[in-house]
Design a protein around this nucleic acid. Structure first.
Lengths: 341, 341
DNA sequence: ATAACTGATGTTATCGATGTCATTCCCGCT
DNA sequence: AGCGGGAATGACATCGATAACATCAGTTAT
């Protein structure tokens, strides 16, 4: 046996100052080789039960912690998953905030239980040539998962799960997203059922999810007497105010506004109400997301918790070497004051 | 020179299948040693400018990425910071969600710019004996940064920044938190200014932040004729409903409710309104956080963006070897319908 | 009795980067 | 010619863990 005198070795370790204890230190303490320590801590049946517990107790008593870098280097697994967010350079906050961040909570819970670390980064950071990626898989949150972001992530050659609407063109990748089309359908049916005839849709359908919402809406009102007109509008409350103000100027002739998101709907309410119109008697207004829980606003609720858990689940499947299919999450119509007096 | 024939070596590399390119591969491609590659990629002046750019171009062209584990192992720096969240085991979501998660957005932005990875984990996970910590520093988000969580984090012997109210007992640690006492004071002055005399405070002052809010409130109304009564109440809307219902049973005699958070305030509004009382004519109601942006609710706004940036800034100071002091962030009174008809 | 096997442990090489020290080359100076 | 010195490059050891293979009792099979 080549194990050196225990006392001498331990003294050396303590001389190292701030340096933390390693498996080698534990090995000398337990008078075994370090591979035995490694095996014991991993609960390998190759180590006698008795020895195993002794080593674990020693580790616990000395507050030993495995060195993540060393393990990752040797095993070629990072034991972590990176979520890539799109940040708004102006505000310095994630797009779709706080929705995406709520999903992150769901991811965190699932991954922590599975002993995977969850790493957050921005797209700008990860695509930079000198970025250092330390992950077994990537979860992409893009602005509607635009193609560029998508292709960039692909190049990392890691298991990939994307939040957004599935794209036919990329049928080899797992997409997870709310059923936006169904959400649009629910809203369309609701508005048509209220007898609305002239619906103004606010949103930019270059954004995949918005396009789906619009498609659902139009499909649902097709059988009715209602007509849908579209105006391009970005996601902010301010953008919405501007568009509605313009429409009022041009001579308003709508009895319903279907907005692509809650803030957009609130922007519409702001301007319409200050122009003396009332919801829902003069105009019915709907949003999308139910992120704000505004008592005034009829909207379609997405299940953010489920979103996080589903994304994490798909990733874990991929990491386990299984196939992962896309998932369409259910949505729910929430009727409130803006369409229901 | 021991550098083997380039062609042969490159062929070997490609035979490795999925294995990514390493510095050694780049070195053979560039006909230099791997240490030169290492230096070139780190912009060391020890490498001739010409050689440096050639190597960088090669790296870029072949999509080379530095191995995080190898670097961390050698340099003993993880290039990452771990945020530790307290999760509610029942809901599987972070306490104070979505507020904390909004702060995370601010952290992410700052750390990504500094090329630090942001890792998320839960307290339950990180304190488990077999957890693997891979971070240069810890940021703790606790339920009021309770002492136990606090002591646990300390044991990791890493730079530590805590979100919450500063504690005299731990004056060697950097705390970052909103000025809860000032928030309480603003609310107290506001309610007293409205002529309210019997204020019901809802909250559990075992929670440090709540205690501060209460202290500020009581201090502010001391000079006035108003009296503050406290009822212990947890953070949920449901808990609040129960407490208010009980108070109504016992014979209501308050003209103001100061809740420790927005959901608690909304719970109070729910019950009071369904009992036929009106805000603010019968009861003025206030919240705290402005997380919900409810048009009905007077509240104190915290600056979550600033919170994230400040926390990240303090951590970067510590990582740079500097001292970090605690910070008290400004708050703002937002008057809305529940106190202002 | 000997080969084959099983269970528990140890030795060595390795993962990919970088700190430390050694080497080489070229220049200018005496 | 020879020596000192700086600039550029390389060899080697190392970080802490684990995979792959080796060893060595003690047991069972033939």
């Amino acid at each position: 046996m080549k194990i050196p005198d225990a006392k001498e070795k331990v003294a050396t370790a303590s001389h190292r100052g701030g340096t933390a204890m390693t498996m080698a230190d534990l090995a000398t303490l337990a008078s075994v080789s370090k591979i035995t320590v490694s095996r014991a801590l991993r609960d390998s049946s190759l180590v006698r039960e008795e020895v195993r517990t002794r080593i674990k107790e020693l580790a616990e008593a000395h507050g030993y912690r495995l060195n993540a870098a060393a393990r990752s280097l040797r095993t070629r697994r990072a034991h972590s998953v990176t979520a890539v967010l799109e940040m708004d350079p102006a505000s310095g906050r994630p797009y779709s905030d706080p929705l995406i961040l709520t999903v992150i909570g769901g991811l965190l819970q699932t991954f922590a239980m599975q002993r995977y670390r969850l790493v957050l980064t921005t797209r700008a950071e990860i695509v930079s040539a000198t970025s250092v990626v330390d992950a077994d898989g990537l979860i992409l949150f893009g602005q509607g998962a635009n193609d560029e972001a998508f292709q960039q992530m692909r190049r990392f050659n890691l298991p990939l799960v994307v939040w957004g609407s599935a794209r036919a063109a990329f049928d080899d990748v797992a997409f997870v997203g709310s059923d936006n089309r169904e959400g649009g359908r629910l809203l369309g049916a609701h508005l048509a059922g209220l007898g609305r005839r002239r619906i103004l849709f606010l949103g930019d359908s270059a954004h995949e999810e918005v396009a789906d919402r619009l498609a659902g809406l139009t499909g649902a009102v097709r059988k009715s007497a209602a007509k849908v007109t579209t105006r391009i509008c970005q996601f902010s409350r301010e953008a919405s105010r501007a568009v509605i103000a313009e429409e009022l100027d041009k001579g308003w002739d709508f009895d319903a506004v279907a907005a692509c998101s809650d803030p957009v709907a609130l922007g519409a309410l702001d301007v319409l109400e200050s122009a003396g119109m009332r919801a829902p008697s003069d105009v019915a207004v709907t949003g999308f997301d139910d992120a704000i829980h505004d008592p005034r606003l009829t909207t379609v609720r997405q299940d953010w918790d489920l979103a996080g858990r589903t994304l994490a689940g798909k990733m874990l499947d991929l990491l386990a070497g299984e196939e992962a299919t896309s998932a369409l999450l259910p949505v729910e119509l929430v009727v409130r004051a803006s369409t229901d007096a």
